[in-house]
Amino acid sequence: MAVIVYAESDNGIYKKSSFEATTYGKDLADKLGTDCIAVTIGNKGTQNLGVYGAESELNVSGSTFDSFNPQTYATALSEVASSNGGDTIVISQTYTGKSIAPLVAVKQDAALVTGIVDMVDTSNGFTVKKTCFSSKAIGHVSINHSKRVLTLIPNSYKIYQDGSEISSSEVSTSVSDADNNTTIEATDKVTGKIPLTEAELVVSAGRGLKGPENWDMVEELADVLGAATACSKPVSDMEWRPHSEHVGQTGITIKPNLYIAAGISGAIQHLAGVGSSKVICVINTDPEAPFFKAADYGIVGDAFDVIPRLIKRAKEIKAS
């Protein structure tokens, strides 16, 4: 028995969600009375995963893993799990994690639960909470099977860093270049910005901002706070902002600690993607805007007046 955590990295940098998955795996292993083993694939990050709770770390490396392919990554993870007695595999629910988890589940003949938002309850079997109906509900899923693959929604579990450093060891798998069944032709990544899926703070704006030329203040507020930027669907449909910023039912689902929404009405499909954010601040000229019902802080006011003042105040706070 062991809990296996996939610690995802991107070009030598761990995703923050990997630390979260590691802490989650450690706490779960404690509950189950077993060990938490972190597995890295390809060019791993520099931090020591022991600090985040891993009791051992196994690395799969080699040029085969230079580019991401669901089949090669899933095979590697599954083989390492099998050879280390892994019966519960924790993967954070990034795009990469979502692509490999189902493959690993079939390879392991394991139950698969995605969209997990909380720690497993082992008081009566093995039950876990997952998001349902686009964040409108939480389902309690009972797993009636001895092997499980679990994917954890980023920003659902508190990371700790009080573990001790561990050494890692290289492991080999049967995976070779021949297992790679897709050919990547081009990659287009936003660089130098905080990716929305990993951001803890998000500043977002909607059609109330009237045009793409008015986004400078949104970006500036985000910059001052160290936040990522997001937008509503019409804004990305009209190409005022890149599609990668579109949050909601049909866009990205995010769960940041802070979501500031300016000039967004708060339609149910928008809330589906952002409603689980921890602190929601809404700025809207219309006191009846539905978003206020889902907010923690609200300002009835004109974004063109309010945002510049928020920027000014945030700068003062930062400077003091």
Partner: peptide
């Protein structure tokens, strides 16, 4: 392998 045994609604905001 899995079954949903019950549902809950997400915790309501304590008010704006």
């Amino acid at each position: 392998y899995t079954s949903i045994t019950s549902y809950e609604l997400p915790p309501a905001k304590s008010g704006v």
